[in-house]
Amino acid sequence: MKTIGKIFLSLSLALLFCWVAPWLYRLITLKAYATPFTLYSCTLHDFTSLDRSDEREFRFIDRSGGVHGDEAQPMFYASILASRGALPDSIEGRKISLEEIDYHSVIASSDPKDVNRTVPPVYLLMESVPERLELKDPEDAMVSRKSGIDIYDMATNTLRADKTAALNAALKARGFVFPARLFAGKPSHRKEYDEGYLVTDAEGKLFQLKQVNDSVTVRHFPAADGIGIDFLMITEFENHATLGYLTGADGCLQFLCPDGRIINTTVPFNPRKEDLLIVGDMFYYTVKVSDDKGERFWALRSSDFAPVDSMSRAYPHQRNLPGISFTSSTDSRVKLRLQQ
């Protein structure tokens, strides 16, 4: 036992050193840096980055070094331009107005920490067609189990047997194979409308579950069969341009349209390791995919989500000491990780 004690203490001290030394080194040597906010400009047809070197001025720099004012981003700074009377009447031959710009404005993001989060198989169920029009806090919740999805009344923690039986019968009728794998939804009343949940079954088929008049409706998206969906995100934007975003076995970002079509943007995106930021307007979507090495941008045409331009920016290299760590910037799990 004495020898085991000695070995235990020595190993523990070695592990402690390998954990603390790289952390201390990073703490001392880490240099903060900021990357500029970058969007695709519908007037310049180029990516422009916000330059705040002079804090009193908002300047946008395009890729060839040209300096522009707010008019380089008339969609993002529409209110400011309108207050100066500088908002153009039309862009690319299309008439624009503040209301229309606002209606088509889209911002969405995904963080690997959220994607990798261990979540309980419990999903709050909102009423999508509320009696008084305003969305209300959910009263029921779905609990995903091996043999089906059970619906509970949260206030009393009791199974709503009729509703559960109706949902499972509807799911089976549409070819749903239990257990469900992925759920994506935003059960919050702080949104314009509710589209319920996008769900994949045990075979990877895509469905939408939505509560309408206290009954859960089921919709199947045959276009997604065989894609191998491994990431789902519901959008619920005011303009109903998309129903959700997803990634499949090909590792590219795909858009699910309300009519059930799936458009592959061909933007490579690994949701478990990379951040995603999408800023869209009437004309273009700027898609930013970033990790700890750098960020890549794509401009997609809003009408058909076809890529029109791309650029990338590498972050300055930070030297790290090899060692071990137990946490990561891409997930919340604690486990032993080797650091190069």
């Binding site: 709050l124 009263e139 919740a141 009393t156």
Partner: peptide
């Protein structure tokens, strides 16, 4: 109400 406990635990 107990629904708040569910919401807090899930979200």
């Amino acid at each position: 109400g107990a629904a708040l406990l569910w919401e807090t635990l899930v979200a």
